[in-house]
Simulated assay, not measured.
Amino acid sequence: MADNQRGVSEMKILIVSDSHGLEDELHTLSQRHQDADIMIHCGDSELASHHPVLTGYKVVAGNCDVPSAGFPNNLVIDLDDHKIFVTHGHLYNVKMTEMNLLYKAEEAGAKIVCFGHTHLAGSGQANGCVWINPGSIRLPRGRREATYAIATWEKRVQTLTVNFYDVSGRAVEALTASYKL
C-alpha cells in the first residue's frame, strides 16, 4: 500500500469493540479520529449492518449480533506488506486463551489480530503476531474506563504502536505498547 494522504509512511487504525447498541459514542469516535486510515469494529455492535454510525467501519459479527445483521465472522485486511485478522473472538474461545486465535491468524497469514468479546483492554505479541483487544466502550472489565484503541503502523521502522483511550479521548498510558513486526 502506498503512503497515505499525510505524506508519511504511517497508518492509523481505530479499533473498537463491544459497543452493545451505543450509537453516539461510535459516531463521536469516527469524528474524533477522522485521520484514521482504517476503522475496525470487532463485533457486538448490536446494530444493523446498514446503520449510519457504522459507515466507514469494517465490522465483524459478535455473539450478541443477530445473524440477519449480515456481518462476517472474520475479516482479513491488507496493511502494506502485512495482514490484519479481525474477529470477535467467541468462536476461538478467547476467554480461555489467545492461542486458538493466534493459530487462526497464522493460517490467514496475518501479523496483527484484532478481537473483542472479553471486554478486557490489552495487547501483546506471541509467535511474531501482535494481538489487540480494545476492550469495550460500553461494559469494560478489569478497568473502570470504557476503552478503544488506536494502532499506528510506522512502515519505515516496521513498528506497531498501540495506544488506548477512554471514550472521552483521554489516553490510558498504562496500556500503551510498541511492537516490531
Rank of each mutant, 00 (worst) to 15 (best):
M1R: 14
D3E: 14
D3A: 13
M11Q: 09
S17Y: 03
H20F: 08
H20A: 06
G21F: 08
L22R: 01
D24Q: 09
L26R: 07
H27R: 11
T28A: 08
T28K: 03
R32K: 12
R32M: 15
D35I: 04
I40G: 06
I40E: 06
H41S: 05
D44Y: 05
A48K: 14
V53T: 14
T55S: 12
Y57W: 07
G62V: 09
N63H: 03
S68D: 15
I77W: 06
K83I: 09
K83V: 13
I84A: 01
V86R: 00
T87S: 07
L91G: 05
V94K: 00
M96G: 13
M99R: 04
N100C: 10
Y103I: 15
Y103M: 13
E107H: 05
A110L: 04
G116H: 00
H119C: 02
L120A: 06
G122A: 09
Q125L: 06
A126H: 11
G128S: 11
V130A: 09
W131I: 12
G135D: 11
G135C: 03
G135K: 01
S136F: 09
R138S: 15
P140E: 14
R141L: 12
R143E: 09
R144E: 15
E145A: 14
A146Y: 02
T147C: 03
T147P: 07
T147S: 08
Y148H: 06
A149F: 06
I150N: 01
A151N: 01
T152I: 07
W153N: 10
R156K: 13
T161H: 00
V162G: 05
N163F: 06
V167I: 15
S168V: 07
G169E: 02
A171I: 15
V172I: 15
E173G: 04
L175F: 03
L175S: 03
S178T: 15
L181Q: 08
